[in-house]
Amino acid sequence: MILQQLINGLTLGSTYALTAVGYSMVFGILELVNFSHGSVYMVGAFLTLIFLTSLKLNFFVSFLLSIILTGLLGILIDKVSLYPLRRKNAPKVTALISTIGVSIFLQNLVMLVWGSETKNFPLVINPGAVELMGVKVSFLQMIIFSMCLVIMIGLNTMIQKTRIGKAMRATAQNAEAAKLMGIDINRVIMITFFIGSALASVAGTMVGMYYQTIDPYIGYMAGLKAFAAAVLGGIGVLPGAIIGGLLIGVIETLSAAYINSGYRDAIAFAVLVLMLVIKPSGLLGKQVSKKV
């Protein structure tokens, strides 16, 4: 039983991890919280569904289109709501409020365009499952987990090995110096938003398939849990997002099963608040001293 919950928790957790990457990467580079990320995740799930059902496209085409469009949406959000603030050197909190605005705007836009009712997400993967020692692991769970794993390894390799990855790390370390070394900061930021949002679309679509329903409100909770995951692991640190995501997923599933399912959402918040109060830098983050 506990093993089964663990499997379910890891599946859910891997989607949190994918979403957490978006928060973490943006924070790493811009040191701000992009609150709209949860809504981006929701839009990603909706786009896949709309291409799939309304336009009757093949699942993989729908998924790919959604990933690209959601990635572009991320860039657009930065250009509209963050870039102007960056240029004015506005306090970080204005960026938070501005992206909260974007988040609410997107959520309500989706409600106006596609309706606020819950939508069925069709089965596209064989619903079968493998049973091992009394633990049922569905094909979909395997796909979600392995897909997240592959993406994370790929992303990590990209950031460690490629030119753009190095540029991203340099910008995260010291944007001013990176600029002087000839790194095109704006391009780095654009790519960061694209990747983060594209991954949110992957996560949103996966969760849509997993629960077989989506609605315009899913982004809020998922976004906050992913943010909690990013903070837990250490915001700005990529492996932190993975560890945080998996942990939040497991903690949530276990506490829902063994404590009280009514409080399953509260657990993530409690972890978030405790972590921020006790060690804001997270499990893998470094403590920063205050500047005078």
Binding site: K92, F227, V231, G262, F269, V273, L276, P280
Partner: peptide, 20 residues
């Protein structure tokens, strides 16, 4: 111990926990 964005997030968490 908390400032700016982190503080705001904690207040948000508090609001959600209260509601739950």
């Amino acid at each position: 111990r908390l400032n700016g964005t982190y503080l705001s997030i904690v207040t948000l968490g508090f609001c959600e926990i209260t509601r739950l």
